[in-house]
Amino acid sequence: MKILICMSNVPDTTTKIRFKDGNTALDTTGVQWIINPWDELALTRALQLKEEPGSGVEKVTVITVGLADAEPTIRKALAIGADDAIRINSQATDAYDVARQIAEAVNNEGYDLILCGIESSDYNNSMVGGMISEFLDIPSVSSVSSVTVDSGRFKIKREIDGGKETLSVTAPFLAVVQKGIALEPRIPSMRGIMMARTKPLKVIEPVTSEVLVEHIRYELPPSKAKCRMVAEDNVRELVQLLHTEAKVI
């Protein structure tokens, strides 16, 4: 069995966000790039499955849509333990484009399970997974918090309103994974790091794709109001502040 991880190359979560070109684009100067945290957890789970005796998982591949500057992030995934990687040589424009490029690249490649993080930590669209499954005409399962495999069948746990449901799914299918899929990302071993460059990283050219989204403007959230401390026994002042300043009561 083969597992594919769709991976996004995103700014480190502690990045101080700045915009350029009249607030229409992210200023990437000095930005550290990382594996999208949800995708990193998906990769972790895939590697755990591969290591489980009898799981039948033989290979874990990562795929990303991005230019050559995304390769350090791809090699981090190889260092962590992915067997090989595919980079679609294109600057990702929108979710439709990313999904289409990935679907074109992996159609007929025989992946049994495709894992996508629930969202990328930069654009938070949560769309790519569902779109890929549509393009490939395979089932998709959303909000997945657990994937196990038993004699060729995958058992999925997913979050539903007020509880969880367990499903049995036959490959091939796509799972959009979220919290719980793995406890924490793996730290790459030193050997993994040194070997990352020796693992296959296939670069393929993109198909022509229609750009459906144009970014008109970005803006930062308003800065947080200063915290006011009220003495614990001064309920009167607290109520007054909530009424006159915060205007919530």
């Binding site: 260092a79 730290i187 030193m190 790091i193």
Partner: peptide, 14 residues
């Protein structure tokens, strides 16, 4: 190098 940065990050994470 890319490797040096990964080593640093791995040690920091650990």
């Amino acid at each position: 190098t890319e490797e040096q940065r990964m080593i640093q990050q791995a040690a920091r994470d650990f």
